[in-house]
Design a protein around this nucleic acid. Structure first.
Length: 114
RNA sequence: UGAGUUGGCUGGGCAGUCGCGCGUGGCGGUAACGCUAGCGAGGAAAGUCCGGGCUGCACAGGGCAAGGAUAACGGCUAACGGCCGCCGAGGGUGACCUUAGGGAAAGUGCAACAGAAAGAAACCGCCCCGCAAGGGGUAAGGGUGGAAAGGCGAGGUAAGAGCUCACCGGCGCGUGGGGAACCGCGCGGCCCUGCAAACCCUAUCCGCAGCAACAGCGACAGCAAGUGUGCGUGAAAUCGCACAGCGUGCCCUGCGUAAACAAACUUGCAACGGCUGGCAAAGAUGUGCGUAGCAAUGCGUGCACAAGAUAAAUGACGCCUUCAAUGACAGAACCCGGCUUACAGGCCAACUCUCACC
RNA sequence: CGGGACGUGGCGAAGUUUGGUAUCGCGCCUGGUUUGGGACCAGGAUGCCGCAGGUUCGAAUCCUGUCGUCCCGA
């Protein structure tokens, strides 16, 4: 992802719902990834941390860890995708480098990265 | 030496590499913007329990009703249901802690079961009268109960009883102290059970809503409304005046109730992944010193203080200190003053009891 | 930001108004009936009434604080 201009983030509830409903997904104890090809002409991503994960501090930490893992990803994205990352109970206790390893494997399997 | 009480502080640091928010300063650029410096979560930012600022409701003045809140006394404060002091009550050997703590002779209600009786009472017992049945007196004793008609002792009596007396408790009056709650002393007579976090009464305070308030701007298409009577000017009333109507739960006073040249105009609603302001540096701010005060706090003076997002910024890697920080509780959302609740570890001060020694 | 409701045996509810005994249905256990099971009959167990204080002689009920769940409005 390095040397690429800032990615747009998903904001509308409808975009998230479309990714959940029609996108492909993979699950791990610390991260769930949804991916769906879009027609927006660019790649977008969103991060979700539900109330079940913890209080506001814990939810913020999950979002930061996931965002840092995604930011420092080396491989470029092939094509235009909407990607949604969902934090789980283990996310807040995991290091961002470990999350990145899981994320890389999931994105590769989904065909987002080479 | 050990145990404890109260109050306060802290809530890792370093800045090397990468990254984020703001847009205050500088540089470059016509501009968009780029580079760089700067600033960037808490003591509770939390819960949203009180009080204000601010904004709107025409909401100005007065009264009534309803509803809500508070409750010894004095003070502090912009205000408070907060804080300080003090009194009473309760707990602790003590430092100290706790305390919704007005009124039960204004009225209504409740007090299950037990008990004769739960408010002004006679079941047993005791005493008197009577052959007996029964009648009368009596709250000392028994028994029930959380609570039984002031407590206890002496006198007194047929037996008893504040019937009388001493002490204690309560009430009333007087008096001394205190700013007051209240405390002390003297005198008087002996009348009153508990529950108002039951209804209620008394005193004091409170208009309602909330930054998704509110103000402004805009694209595509839309919707609704512009009250009644009389008089005046005009060709025409949406102009002027009066009354009515409408505008807060009600009443009174006062106030408001858009817009002229005949096809527009005005107002309101609604609509959007809306946008901008409100809203980010300065005020009921914090702190040092002086001063008034027991204190809360006031006054004077010096110094310090740039988080400001809008799906929402503080992270990752590394190093150091550490028993441990990967691991206390926890993330600003208009802003302040409090309250309440959560909190690993560490530090400081004052005081109390105890042990030892002098 | 504002408003409201609810936490009671394993599950679902009543009781809270007006304070004194916690009740009902399903489920569970034991026994009977049956060759056995179901159904049926008889009996039984199961509660810190979300938590912590307070008022009261006495609290599921009243008051205060607190935790959790759900709903509504702007």
């Amino acid at each position: 992802m390095k040397h690429v201009e800032k990615l747009e983030t998903l904001k509308i509830n409808g975009d998230f719902r479309r990714a959940y409903g029609r996108g492909k997904s993979l699950t791990a104890p610390a991260l769930v990834t949804y991916a769906l090809r879009n027609r927006a002409g660019r790649c977008r991503y969103g991060i979700t941390a539900s109330k079940k994960v913890g209080n506001a501090v814990v939810r913020n930490r999950c979002r930061r860890i996931i965002r840092e893992a995604f930011r420092t990803l080396d491989e470029p994205v092939r094509g235009n995708w909407d990607i949604v990352f969902v934090a789980r109970g283990r996310t807040s206790q995991t290091k961002s480098t470990d999350i990145q390893r899981v994320m890389k494997a999931q994105l590769k399997k989904l065909g987002v990265i080479a």
